[in-house]
Design a protein around this nucleic acid. Structure first.
Lengths: 195, 195
DNA sequence: GCTCTCGTTGACACGCTGCCAACGGCTGGT
DNA sequence: ACCAGCCGTTGGCAGCGTGTCAACGAGAGC
C-alpha cells in the first residue's frame, strides 16, 4: 500500500463530509432501522466510534443527512421565463419534475413525507418554508404572507402525494402530474373564495 | 386478590384485542422507536414474550395498529345533504374536519404522512384508495376512475399538510383550512385543463 | 378428580448503540 | 531536523432491546 486508507488523519470538516456522504448513500437505499452504525462506519471507511464522536448519535447523523437533502434547492427559481402566471407556474413545475426525476430514489426516501418524527418534521418544515418563500416571490409577489405561505406549504403535501402516484404507483404519467400540479398551484394562489 | 390479572387464560382474539388497544395508546403518544416491547407488554398487562407470540414482531404489531387506525372511516359519506357540488364538497370537508379535530392526537401520529416505510405506505395507500372511492362516488359519480382517483389521492396529501398547518403550526385557522380544502377539492375534480 | 391442551411466562442469546481511555500521525516551536 | 503536545482516530466495554424457546399451569372435557 502506498497510502494507508485506515487511520489517516483528515481535516475534521472533510471527515464529516465523508461520513455524511456515505450515510447519504446508505439511507437513500435502506430505511433508518436497517442501517447500523457499523454499516455507516464501513461505508465511510472509518471506525465506528468516530460516528459518535462527530455526530453524537446515529439519529443526529440521520438528521444531518435529511437536512442536507431537503435544503438542496439552492438553484434560483428566479431564472423562470417571463410570461403569464400560468406559463411561469408551468415552468416552475417542469423544473421541479426534472429535479425529482433525476434524484428519484433520494426524493422518495425522505420527500415522501414526515416520519411522525418531530425533529424530521422540523427540518422538513424549515425546507418547505424556504421553498414556499421562493414560490411566492416568483409567482405571486404581491400576495400577503399570512394565509398564502401556509396554503403553498399545504400544496407541497399534494406535490409529494402526486410524485408518489407518478413515480411509485404509476397511476399518473408525467403529463398528467404536471397538469394536476399546475391546476392546484394556481387554485392555491387564488384569493380566498369563501364558499 | 379476588381475580389474579396476570397469567389468566383468555380467548386468543380477546387477548390480541387487549394488546392492540394498549399499543394504540402508546404509539399514539410516542414515536415507534421510543416504544419498547417491554412498554407494550406492561401496557397490555402481559408478559413480553406474548407480544411476539401473537404478532411475531414489534413491527408487525405496529403495522396492525396503523391498519386499525387508518381503516376507521366506516361512517358512510352517503349521508351528505343534496345540493350543488360546492355545497356537498363543503359538507364533506366539514365532516372530515370534525373527525380530525376529535381524534387530533391519533390522526397526527399516523395521518401525518408515510414514514418512507414501504409496508406502512401500502397500508395507507389501501386506506386512501377506499376514501378516494367514497369521495368520487359522492361528488363526481360520473367521472372516469382513471386519472381522477389518482388526483383525489394526491389531494389527500394536501389534506394532511393542511391539517398540520392548522393543528400543529397554527398558521391556518379552521375556516381558512376549510376554504383551502374546498377550493382545491373542486379544482382536482375539474376535468383536465392541459395548460 | 384426572388428564390433556394450549395460552402464558421468564430466562437466554445475540445484535446494536453510546461511551471512553489509549494510541499514534501530524503540526508548530526551537 | 528533532521533539513534544495536540487531537483525530481506534477498539473494546457495558447496557439495552429484541426475538426465541422450553417449561409451567389454568381451564375444559370426560
Amino acid at each position: 500500500m502506498s497510502t494507508p486508507l485506515r487511520g489517516r488523519r483528515l481535516d475534521p470538516d472533510a471527515r464529516r463530509e465523508e461520513i455524511v456522504a456515505g450515510a447519504l448513500r446508505l439511507f437513500a437505499e435502506h430505511p433508518y432501522a436497517a442501517v447500523s452504525t457499523t454499516d455507516l462506519a464501513r461505508e465511510a471507511g472509518v471506525a465506528r466510534g468516530l460516528i459518535n464522536h462527530y455526530f453524537g448519535t446515529k439519529r443526529d447523523l440521520y438528521l444531518e443527512v435529511v437536512r442536507r437533502l431537503t435544503t438542496i434547492p439552492e438553484v434560483a427559481v428566479a431564472e423562470l421565463p417571463p410570461g403569464t402566471v400560468e406559463q411561469r407556474a408551468g415552468a416552475a413545475v417542469d423544473w421541479f419534475l426534472d429535479a425529482v426525476e433525476r434524484h428519484r430514489g433520494l426524493w422518495l426516501s425522505v420527500g415522501t413525507g414526515a416520519a411522525g418524527d418531530i425533529d424530521v418534521d422540523a427540518i422538513l418544515a424549515e425546507a418547505d418554508e424556504i421553498a414556499a418563500d421562493r414560490v411566492l416571490a416568483a409567482l405571486a409577489p404581491d400576495a400577503p404572507d399570512d394565509p398564502y405561505r401556509a396554503r403553498v406549504r399545504s400544496f407541497f403535501g399534494l406535490v409529494r402525494s402526486a410524485s408518489r402516484e407518478w413515480l411509485v404507483r404509476g397511476t399518473l404519467d408525467r403529463a398528467r402530474t404536471r397538469a394536476l400540479l399546475v391546476t392546484v398551484l394556481l387554485a392555491v394562489l387564488e384569493p380566498d373564495s369563501q364558499v
